Simulated assay, not measured.
Amino acid sequence: MLSWALTFLVVALIAAVLGFTTIAGTAIEIAKIIFFVAIILFLISAVMGFMRRGRGPAL
């Protein structure tokens, strides 16, 4: 998922250099949304992993 955020960031930078400000703005907003979604999913996964580790062996 972070690779998609990086891809949109690169697209935004290239568009900004070429002067396509609307495309650059849209791409950077998409990159930010994907980045924050990835961070939230990582935190949820980490919390669930710590909660599961505290119990005994999974059956």
Rank of each mutant, 00 (worst) to 15 (best):
Met1Asn: 10
Met1Ala: 07
Leu2Asn: 09
Leu2Ser: 03
Leu2Tyr: 08
Ser3Gln: 09
Trp4Phe: 09
Trp4Ile: 09
Trp4Gly: 08
Trp4Ser: 13
Ala5Leu: 01
Leu6Cys: 02
Leu6His: 01
Thr7Val: 05
Thr7Ala: 09
Thr7Asn: 11
Phe8Met: 05
Phe8Gly: 00
Phe8Lys: 03
Leu9His: 09
Val10Ile: 08
Val11Cys: 07
Val11Ala: 04
Ala12Ile: 01
Leu13Trp: 06
Leu13Gly: 00
Leu13His: 05
Leu13Pro: 00
Leu13Ile: 06
Leu13Ser: 02
Leu13Ala: 10
Leu13Asn: 05
Ile14Pro: 01
Ile14Ser: 04
Ile14Asn: 00
Ile14Arg: 01
Ile14Ala: 04
Ile14Val: 10
Ile14His: 03
Ile14Met: 01
Ala15Ile: 00
Ala15Pro: 03
Ala16Trp: 02
Ala16Asn: 08
Ala16Gly: 13
Ala16Tyr: 08
Ala16Ser: 11
Ala16Glu: 08
Val17Arg: 14
Val17Ala: 12
Val17Tyr: 05
Leu18Ser: 14
Leu18Gly: 04
Gly19Cys: 02
Gly19Trp: 03
Phe20Leu: 12
Thr21Lys: 13
Thr22Glu: 14
Thr22Pro: 04
Thr22His: 07
Ile23Gly: 04
Ile23Pro: 00
Ala24Thr: 00
Gly25Trp: 07
Gly25Lys: 02
Thr26Ser: 12
Thr26Ala: 12
Thr26Gly: 13
Ala27Met: 03
Ala27Gly: 02
Ala27Trp: 02
Ala27Arg: 03
Ala27Phe: 01
Ile28Ala: 01
Ile28Gln: 00
Ile28Glu: 00
Glu29Leu: 10
Glu29Cys: 10
Glu29Gln: 05
Ile30Gln: 11
Ile30Pro: 02
Ile30Asn: 07
Ile30Met: 14
Ile30Gly: 05
Ala31Met: 03
Ala31Pro: 01
Ala31Ile: 01
Ala31Gln: 02
Lys32Thr: 09
Lys32Tyr: 01
Lys32Gly: 08
Lys32Val: 06
Lys32Met: 02
Lys32Cys: 04
Ile33Leu: 14
Ile33Ala: 15
Ile34Tyr: 06
Ile34Arg: 05
Ile34Thr: 03
Ile34His: 05
Ile34Gly: 02
Ile34Leu: 13
Phe35Asn: 07
Phe35Gln: 07
Phe36Lys: 14
Phe36Asp: 13
Val37Ala: 12
Val37Met: 13
Val37Pro: 03
Ala38Arg: 04
Ala38Asn: 06
Ala38Lys: 03
Ala38Gly: 12
Ile39Arg: 12
Ile39Tyr: 11
Ile39Val: 15
Leu41Thr: 06
Leu43Tyr: 10
Leu43Met: 12
Leu43Ile: 15
Leu43Pro: 02
Leu43Gln: 08
Leu43Arg: 10
Ile44Gly: 01
Ile44Arg: 05
Ile44Pro: 02
Ile44Phe: 09
Ile44Lys: 05
Ser45Arg: 13
Val47Thr: 11
Val47Tyr: 06
Val47His: 05
Met48Ser: 15
Gly49Ala: 15
Gly49Lys: 14
Gly49Val: 10
Gly49Cys: 05
Phe50Met: 14
Met51Pro: 04
Met51Ala: 13
Met51Phe: 14
Arg52Gly: 11
Arg53Ala: 15
Arg53Thr: 13
Gly54Tyr: 12
Gly54Leu: 15
Gly54Cys: 11
Arg55Glu: 14
Arg55Leu: 15
Gly56Tyr: 10
Gly56Ser: 06
Pro57Arg: 15
Pro57His: 10
Pro57Tyr: 09
Ala58Met: 14
Ala58Trp: 10
Leu59Phe: 08
Leu59Gln: 10
Leu59Thr: 08
